[in-house]
Amino acid sequence: RAAQGRAYGNLGNSHYLLGNFPKAVAFHKQRLAIAKEFGDKAAEKRAHSNLGNAHIFLGRFDVAAEYFRKALQLSRQLKDQAVEAQCCYSLGNTYTLLQDYEKAIDYHLKHLAIAQELGDRVGEGRACWSLEDAYMSLGNREQALYFAEKHLEISQEVGDQD
């Protein structure tokens, strides 16, 4: 049964990479059910993240946000800060797609704080870029400029010319 769970997860990921998102969702839901059966929180977290990702490409941003929120909750239970940062980043972007910029900013600031704590400059740069866009969407040019400058500084430091 445990191996069956892993197989479902792998099938879900394969379909996802092929762009077959409805099939990916179906397999990841099976994976999630088996993870719950075993009380395997790490696998449950993975299934939620994968389901969130697939729903982004299905255009179901509201559903994606729910899966990412659950993944965030589990990453906190698992005390995995890198994963927590990843979940916050996904939530920030998803709320931007939902045009809820205040919530997007809230999650991007959480992502930024963890990236700073972990010394992840690339993550910090991404967070600044996202905050720059979210503040611009809100018409807050002063804050947007602040994060644009930080983004530029970090991009130069990490050699990201793009």
Partner: peptide
Amino acid sequence: VQRMHLIQVDSVQRWMEDLKLMTDCE
């Protein structure tokens, strides 16, 4: 409408490009 919106936000577009190849592996 949701799909059109994302085209306007560079940082989100970049995230989605990365996301296409991102799977949380078993």
